[in-house]
Design a protein around this nucleic acid. Structure first.
Lengths: 198, 198
DNA sequence: ATCCGTAAGATACGGACCGTATCTTGTTGG
DNA sequence: CCAACAAGATACGGTCCGTATCTTACGGAT
């Protein structure tokens, strides 16, 4: 912590030390009280070093969060649409847990004001899951014959993620029961009504 | 603005003047840059007067928002479940528009940290709509025979509001098409699959 | 009509943090 | 081995915080 050594870190080593400090500070004081000064002190460096990398708290926090999020290329094939959806939502939960409700809301709040930041946010947090959902869930279900591609409107396509996100932003915790009710009481019924055999 | 008069406002008159100032300041600089000092200056008063009423930006903003939100006791009976849902979601939109995406996210972010504030937030923003939905939408649909009460799980009950909220928090704007797709591609199908005749 | 309690309004404060400029000094690539 | 570059330290003016202190208008009670 109190970096008093002679040696001067650079490049990767410094970068990682800073990101670790951001994370520790975040865990300790939460995003709303995360400050450049606090992070600099904890990382044993100074504010200008941080400002050379990120122009705001939000960008710094996003870089930190992204570096800690699992980004698998796919999810295991469970053999059924229901199982695959649950598996994807479980991955989503593990990612949301890392950021936490408050930080996620605050990030979204600041990003909602800044188109550039907003784009970064979507790329980092939203799009990856949607891609996985398309490839590893809907794709397989179509191959299995559980659903037909034409049934999948844009809204249905996003539905599982939308519902879990809402639950998380509003309540902050996601139990297995919540995920199950989303899948069994909304997602699958909505698909069935359009002719799916699930 | 530059309150230089001799007269000294009190009670209701002062309260309203302050809330108006909060609103104007909010419109001009947004919630993220809303400050006690800015509001005090605009209202022609001083910080202590504000702190005597609210202990934080968030509480102040919430009081302001609540005072400007329409809170009808009911919504018109359109004759069909679909029409009633759309009517309720339209009311919801008009309320969300008042607060705005950024402010809503920021309020939620700060409320998510503070149980007391969180409760206030839910009472002011969430519960009223849910009650309306129960009474004026599901209630009527059951009376009409469109759905049966047993079909309505807790999740389905909240579904329309959840989906609109998600859309608003993520994208900030709610078009008629979005509301229509929510109702026609998710809510009604999910109900139908459970035996509703809608 | 007057008195008194209450709250308005003004001012000032230490403190946190911002965002930037300046400077020194390791480190590293050529 | 040297020059360029970035790390790291320090300091600055500025904004806003949250609170304490003080004066003074108002409004209700006698």
């Amino acid at each position: 912590m109190g970096r008093r050594t002679v040696s001067r870190r650079r490049g990767e080593e410094l970068e990682q030390a800073i990101l670790d400090a951001v994370w520790d500070e975040f865990q300790e004081v939460g995003f709303l009280r995360l400050t450049f000064e606090g992070v600099a002190k904890r990382a044993g460096t100074s504010k200008p070093v941080l400002y050379r990398r990120w122009s705001s708290r939000v960008e710094m926090m996003m870089a930190c969060a992204v570096s800690r999020m699992p980004r698998p290329d796919s999810i295991p094939d469970t053999g059924s649409l229901r199982g695959d959806i649950v598996a994807l939502l479980t991955l989503m939960r593990s990612r949301l847990r890392i950021i936490g409700q408050t930080a996620m809301l605050a990030l979204l709040a600041e990003a909602s004001n800044d188109p550039e930041l907003r784009q970064k946010f979507f790329r980092a947090v939203v799009n990856h899951l949607l891609d996985l959902l398309d490839m590893a869930v809907w794709g397989r279900a179509i191959d299995r014959g559980e659903i037909r591609g034409e049934q999948l409107t844009e809204r249905l396509r996003r539905l599982p993620i939308d519902l879990v996100r809402n639950e998380f932003l509003l309540f902050g915790d996601l139990t297995d029961e919540v995920v199950a009710s989303i899948v069994d009481e909304v997602v699958l019924p909505a698909l069935r009504d359009r002719g799916a055999s699930v």
